[in-house]
């Protein structure tokens, strides 16, 4: 899909995704949450059902805005024991593609990701695909939907998904 038809360039989208990654990697979660519209969703399906539908299937994460806010509050507290102290993370984004705007004016974006997580002596690596729906506002992009579909066949090597992918 050409940039003209969508009205934004891939570079603009990439810059936005890199900025989001930087907020996650610096644990600026309150600012990160500001990227999301209040009807937004954040989903991570189970490894064995990457096409999982949150209405009928079990997902690993199925956050509406209220639960996303609760997730941020939890991770900012000292009581999220798995993430206190916080891991060091490195969110890497590749293979970004932009689809046409849908009827609601949202821009579909897909990308590959690698998220590295280091804590104590442990190294974890999450690999998969992002699916975003972005909205264009006066202040730039807003996230309406983010879904991280994992390519790993299970979570044995990483134990959990306590960080935000």
């Amino acid at each position: 899909m050409s940039a003209v038809a969508v009205g934004v360039s891939r570079q603009q989208v990439e810059d936005f995704l890199y900025a989001e990654a930087a907020l996650l990697d610096t644990w600026s979660l309150d600012d990160w949450l500001q990227l999301y519209d209040e009807d937004a969703k954040y989903e991570v399906p189970c490894n064995d059902a990457p096409d999982g539908n949150p209405d009928t299937d079990l997902l690993l994460i199925d956050d509406d805005y209220a639960r996303l806010r609760a997730r941020v509050a939890r991770l900012n507290s000292r009581r999220a024991h798995r993430e206190y102290p916080h891991s060091r993370t490195n969110h890497q984004i590749f293979n970004v593609t932009i689809a046409a705007r849908d009827d609601g004016g949202e821009i579909g974006v897909t990308a590959s990701f690698t998220v590295w997580r280091f804590r104590g002596a442990k190294t974890s690596c999450y690999v998969g695909h992002y699916r975003y729906r972005l909205r264009l506002s006066d202040n730039g992009f807003r996230i309406a939907f983010k879904r991280a579909e994992l390519d790993m066949t299970d979570l044995r090597a990483v134990s959990d998904v306590a960080i935000i992918l």
Partner: peptide, 20 residues
Amino acid sequence: LDSFLTFLGPGGFATPDDVE
């Protein structure tokens, strides 16, 4: 489904802390 994943799932608000 919501109740399960928020408490019991490895991406929820409880199981990662049990693991820890």
